[in-house]
């Protein structure tokens, strides 16, 4: 039961990662690409972490996975903010339809 739930979560997470990657490749400008990367991938990562938590052998492992998720959230948010503000400063106009 737990194992199959875990597999479902992992697959769902992978699907979000795939969506984020497709978005990064197909979206028109840097800002929309960042959206695809941070939003979809962070959600995908959350699902993967959740799926792995169900398989974890101890409570400590669950805690470590949670910390990994938090750290990656903070890092990816900061990185995307840096990329976006650099793009804005260097005059990359956002895409308008």
């Amino acid at each position: 039961m737990l194992a199959s739930l875990s597999v479902v979560l992992l697959l769902a997470g992978a699907a979000f990662f795939l969506g984020g990657s497709v978005g990064m490749l197909r979206f028109p400008d840097v800002y929309t690409r960042l959206h695809a990367l941070t939003k979809a991938d962070n959600l995908g990562l959350g699902l993967v972490v959740l799926g792995l938590m169900l398989q974890a052998e101890s409570l400590a492992a669950v805690g470590k996975l949670f910390v990994i998720w938090l750290l990656l959230l903070a890092a990816s948010a900061t990185a995307s903010q840096l990329v976006a503000s650099w793009a804005q400063e260097n005059g990359f106009a956002p895409w308008r339809g």
Binding site: L71, T78, S85
Partner: peptide, 15 residues
Amino acid sequence: PEPVLAALSRLLAPL
């Protein structure tokens, strides 16, 4: 430095 980066670094460095 970027304020967001600075905030993150102050958070991460001790960790």
